[in-house]
Design a protein around this nucleic acid. Structure first.
Lengths: 198, 198
DNA sequence: CCGGTATTGGACCGAACGTTTCAGAACTGC
DNA sequence: GCAGTTCTGAAACGTTCGGTCCAATACCGG
């Protein structure tokens, strides 16, 4: 047929994702993307059409990877509902530990994107909304199950508790980004769980 | 002496603050700032030196205004500690209600700035850190007081609970920014309080 | 009312932005 | 090894960026 690309598209996507994650959409220039991926401008535009399209692809990849891992934890039938939620926080904390630049975390691409583009880029906002729905559904199910088992307080409905947890997750991400260390984040997570078991 | 400025510096600062708040630092151009303030380039640069300096001034103003209002609530001796914390959430929810563009909130300039610039702009990060210290100190004091009175659980120390609340506040801001309505945010706040009172 | 000083609007600066173009290189199928 | 197709690197596109310059203007103190 024709000349093949001499780079791995998914590897390039990962590098771009990382760049957007660390610096944000606007602060990442096409030159930065070339440097991060090791590709030339032509290859990037030939493969991904535009900066925005590349961002969309990178974000989609991020959402899929993160949510897949979270759902795996939430649906682990070897654990009780409450243990799964604890495991979810463990996963989160491990991720925060892993992704640090200097004295602070780089946050979560989802949260970062909601904050930076949420109001200005409806297509991206929808992408994140659909992902949130998936996570919320799984979370709600686990909580409802825990409530039936008597492991989780039933004084608030599963939906409300799920939204609370989801919001705490975002809060932990922001706290990590503003410099809180692992112990502090673990303390926040543990305290949040108090609201579920009391 | 000489010709006086024919605009109100603080009013201009408010307008600039609003622009940065809604769109973020990078996505707000100097032209946007001219449009928002109604000033010409010359007046802006003559008064504020640079875009970054204007941002610093605007952020400082925001921090001062927000924190002053929060401290006022937290130090209201007419209320019990727990009532003060409830009032803090009420203040937060009222602010979220007030600041909406379309179907979503515009968040909180502090959180937005941590997310957008936290890792790349140490001077700004320090500014926010100092502000956070003030708010955390007040929060810790109120919680400690509530614990002495037996109104707040003493199974976790005041510092940990304060960090938890602070993180929930950020989480609520992000949730509002991703489209959650008032009832949902109120539910998150109420659930967070469960962790304090058991 | 005039001299001195600061502010103002608008033209303008070089640099960087996202994107396009294109000639040449590289690979496939025949 | 040639024809056909795609990829690649480099140069260049027009636009917008943050910031400067300057002549005209407006005000104050004397």
């Amino acid at each position: 047929m024709a000349r093949p690309k001499n780079f791995d598209e998914e590897r390039a996507l990962d590098a771009a994702m990382r760049a957007f994650w660390v610096n944000g959409y606007h602060a990442t220039s096409t030159q930065d993307l070339c440097d991060a991926t090791g590709l030339g401008r032509s290859s990037i535009y030939n493969t991904f059409t535009s900066k925005h399209e590349l961002f969309t692809r990178a974000l989609t990849r991020y959402l899929e990877a993160m949510t897949a891992r979270q759902l795996e934890v939430l649906e682990d039938s070897a654990k009780s509902p409450l243990e799964r939620i604890r495991a979810l926080f463990d996963l989160l904390l491990a991720g925060e530990e892993e992704n640090r630049r200097g004295d602070r975390g780089i946050g979560c691409l989802t949260v970062n994107t909601v904050v930076e583009l949420g109001g200005a880029d409806p297509a991206t906002a929808r992408l994140i909304e659909r992902d949130q729905d998936r996570r919320m559904t799984a979370l709600r199910a686990v909580i409802a199950r825990g409530q039936r088992d008597g492991e989780i307080r039933a004084t608030r409905d599963a939906d409300q508790l799920a939204r609370f947890l989801n919001s705490v997750v975002a809060g932990i991400r922001v706290a990590g980004q503003s410099g809180a260390d692992r112990d502090v984040l673990a303390g926040i997570a543990a305290t949040a769980l108090d609201a579920l078991v009391a």
